[in-house]
Amino acid sequence: MRPAIFSVCSDPSTLPQWQWFACYLTTGKHLAFYGSFGVVLLLLAITAPAALLFGFGAAASARSHFAPLSWLGKLYIAIVRGVPDIAFFLFFVIALDQGFEWLRHEIKCPDWDQPIRQGNDFVVCPAAKLPLGTAPQWVHETYGFFLAVLTFAIVFGAFAGNVLYGAMRAVPRPQIETAEAYGMSHRQAFWRILVPQMWVYALPGLSNLWMVLIKATPLLFLLGVEDIVYWARELGGSKTARFTDYPHGDWRMWYFLVLLVFYLVFTRLSEMVLTRIMRRLSHGQATAAGEAQRRSAGGPP
């Protein structure tokens, strides 16, 4: 049936143990499992900047002098932080999907006369469907992944917004006052003085957030993406010889042990990199860490 990677794999039941495992670990299913680690990394790579963008928007609007905008920014930050994230993950994916389709429906099919909610069905005109009914499978998968990224970005955007809002307030007030004394407008002072300076104050919070984001990735499973948790459950469950060439008992514990180790290594590596960056950034800064560096280098007290 399958063009096996190793030709010996055609009849696994006769193989010695190590060969059996070599074959077992290279089945198409396992390759999909390995690929799903890539999905997790991809999610992180896309979500981190997206969440930062959301957070920046939230922090900037929370600082706004226009009251409703400021309330909106603060409300967003407060609500997302007050409610368990998992509830958002379960809620947003359906809500976003239906919201997008409804918007497209309103735009593309103004003449549609049937109700959108027919009993339990959520029915929009075919042209408004996301993705279109005729789209190939990969478009559906990408769309699902995109919804997941957006959900992550909304939730973590609020956390990032909180960090950035704090960082903006940590920039010494006289800096802005001086800028305004030099005749800069609000906007200019914000972009030229505040934003460049806030990063060093934001970095500890953001690195914490990064670790948190890594540890939130298994929730992808709840969003229906074929991620590492999905495959670990699928592969680990006991299999009978009738439906697979590789029957085995309940191995879920071992698969989840692999995931556990993966995350431990990943967070450890991140921690090491972030410490380095932090050391770099605090160099020469008028913060406690910068001061400590200067002292340990033997500078004047």
């Binding site: 890594i214 298994p218 989840f256 042990l257 995931l259 556990l260 431990l264």
Partner: peptide, 11 residues
């Protein structure tokens, strides 16, 4: 602290 609670539950 280094691993997700979700995975800890499963494991």
């Amino acid at each position: 602290r280094g691993s997700p609670l979700f995975i800890q539950f499963f494991f």
